[in-house]
């Protein structure tokens, strides 16, 4: 029966292990050095690439700037036009077409039975209206017409122009037998802007 007999002395075995460990350490150190050198080379390459591309772009930028400066007269003209356009756009967007409001108000007036004696347009989107009606019913009809969002005679999209009607006072004038009234009408300014 065969039997493996290890004749290498223990000291020699330990020496071999030590030498092998030192060798692995050397290889590992060289490997780390190569990795570090490679990484450093990559960083230098990337940095050079970035600088090169930046320099190239800088050249393009200078060329573009020169070309743009040559067109400065056009640029000023365009900027002037833009500034005026923006200003005008804002003005038109906020404009209120009061002629439409007067037209819509007139449409809601019961024919020949109510007369508007005075009218004041206020900045808080209200209209103070005072006048005289043939009777209380005529005034009630006028107020109803104003607050009626589906008023048949209204222009398209302007049915809801008058949002609220407050009848402040109604008095009977003894001399003329007419009913004097004072109402405050609120209106939606957006509907006057859209048109």
């Amino acid at each position: 029966m065969l039997k493996n007999i290890d004749l290498i002395p223990e000291e020699e075995r330990q020496e071999q292990v030590r030498k092998s460990a030192v060798k692995v350490g050397t290889i590992l150190a060289v490997f780390i050095l190569l990795v570090v050198l490679g990484f450093a080379a990559y960083l230098i390459y990337s940095s050079t690439q970035f600088k090169s591309e930046t320099a190239s772009l800088e050249t393009d930028i200078v060329k573009s700037r020169t070309a743009i400066k040559e067109l400065s007269a056009i640029e000023i003209s365009a900027r002037n036009l833009d500034a005026r356009y923006q200003a005008l756009k804002l003005l038109f967007e906020n404009r209120r077409y009061y002629s439409i409001l007067l037209t819509e108000l007139e449409k809601r007036l019961p024919a020949s039975s109510v007369v508007i004696e005075s009218l004041t347009l206020n900045v808080d989107n209200t209209v103070n209206v005072s006048g005289a009606g043939a009777d209380y019913l005529a005034i009630a009809k006028f107020a109803k017409n104003l607050s009626d969002s589906s008023f048949s005679g209204a222009q398209e999209k302007l049915g809801a122009l008058f949002t609220n009607v407050t009848l402040n006072s109604v008095n009977l004038d003894q001399q003329t037998s007419q009913a004097k009234f004072f109402i405050i009408v609120e209106f939606d300014p957006k509907l006057l802007r859209l048109l």
């Binding site: 003005l91 404009r95 209120r96 009061y98 007369v115 004696e117 005075s118 009218l119 004041t120 347009l121 206020n122 900045v123």
Partner: peptide, 9 residues
């Protein structure tokens, strides 16, 4: 633009 409007008979 009309800023304000007022009328009376």
């Amino acid at each position: 633009d009309a800023e304000s409007l007022r009328y009376s008979l």
